[in-house]
């Protein structure tokens, strides 16, 4: 399955005229880099050119930052040769920077300057920046609370799911008892347990941990199980004729062979646990990004909501990137794994 990421994009018009002198020969003004710089310049200009239709104290700061970014892009893409891999990476991403600059310009004009999009539902960029500068402590506390809750629940769920999956896959006896329970309870969305969990558990934190673990555990269990069950019997035959004991067959044959499946389960579990995390924080836990979103909505602080959403998406994407890094490291022996 081919996947694409921004770093694969081919830069267009990357070569500019080279100077006569040795020093200048190293400088290539790249068209895409220049265009991206201009887009950011346009964004900065759009902040200053027209007056704001509302009261946003960060407009000037945003404009100056945009100018600095514009200059940085042009400078870095021109001297890309000296910057090594970072320079090459930036050069490759120049079209994306261009698109981003244009998007921000359009956003700025459509909200802060002419109000084409209704306020306060569509806040301008500078009001979101304002959230990050003025409401940072509360936002960071929320991030910390979310990460703590998510990590705890996810690791408990992943570990339990992995062990259950291996046991079901390996032992007929365990499978006999656990499989029906799994079939009955597993497909139930973890959020359906929410009301029960919140009054049976001693704290909302432990209840949420349980729910996140549940949401993670089900896909991990099923995929680990199917991974262990689908290991070719030829591998076991080989290991047995070479003198392997049952413990060796489980630890050194079944588990490594099932690992690609396990990672699919871990990936799916991560996705569903995010959903549970946010819902649990919105309803029960009085902390975390879910709660922050809820709180912002209560105060009609829409800029705060967008700011929190951006942070949340960075965190979720980061978590998946991390998981895929671990997978790539453990499964180097596989051919053609999907890039994230």
């Amino acid at each position: 399955m081919p996947t694409y990421s921004a770093s694969d994009a081919v830069p267009f018009g990357a070569v500019g005229p080279a100077g006569e002198l040795g020093l200048f020969r190293q400088l290539h003004v790249s068209a895409s880099g220049l265009a991206a710089g201009l887009a950011w310049l346009a964004f900065g200009m759009s902040c200053l050119w027209w007056p704001d239709i509302g009261d946003w104290p960060r407009t000037e700061g945003v404009a100056i930052t945009a100018f600095i970014i514009a200059a940085g892009i042009v400078l870095a893409t021109t001297t890309a040769k000296w910057l090594g891999r970072a320079g090459a990476g930036l050069q490759q991403r120049a079209p994306w920077l261009l698109a981003l600059g244009l998007f921000l310009t359009l956003w700025e004009v459509a909200t802060a300057k002419f109000g084409w999009l209704p306020l306060p539902f569509f806040p301008p960029p500078q009001s979101i920046v304002e959230v990050y500068t003025d409401d940072l402590p509360k936002l960071l506390d929320s991030v910390l609370a979310s990460v703590k809750l998510q990590l705890g629940g996810y690791f408990i769920g992943a570990a339990a799911g992995f062990l259950t999956g291996v046991s079901i896959g390996w032992s007929r006896g365990v499978g006999y008892w656990v499989h029906p329970v799994l079939r009955f309870i597993g497909p139930l969305p973890a959020t359906a347990w929410l009301p029960i969990a919140f009054f049976t558990f001693p704290s909302s934190w432990s209840a949420s941990t349980f729910l996140i673990a549940l949401a993670t555990g089900f896909p991990v269990t099923v995929l680990t199980w199917s991974g262990v069950a689908s290991v070719s019997s030829a591998y076991y035959d080989v290991a047995r004729t070479l003198g392997a004991k049952p413990s060796f067959l489980v630890l050194k044959v079944a588990i490594p062979a099932a690992l690609p499946h396990v990672f699919v389960g871990l990936f799916m579990g991560l996705g569903s646990s995010f959903a549970v995390l946010v819902v649990a924080e919105m309803i029960g836990v009085k902390a975390g990004l879910g709660w922050y979103l809820q709180w912002a909505q209560g105060w009609a602080a829409y800029a705060n909501m967008y700011a929190a959403l951006i942070v949340m998406s960075l965190l979720c994407s980061g978590a998946i990137t991390l998981l895929f890094k671990v997978r790539d490291h453990l499964l180097v022996w596989q051919k053609g794994v999907v890039k994230w």
Binding site: A234, Y235, D237, V238, T241, L242
Partner: peptide, 28 residues
């Protein structure tokens, strides 16, 4: 291990390097 089988398919363990595949019996 005094009677070892070589099967029609090599059935090497894909997650192990050549060295570790050969070491399998001694490790087991």
């Amino acid at each position: 291990p005094s009677r070892v089988v070589v099967f029609q398919d090599p059935t090497l363990f894909p997650w192990r390097h050549v060295w570790n595949n050969v070491a399998l019996g001694l490790e087991a």
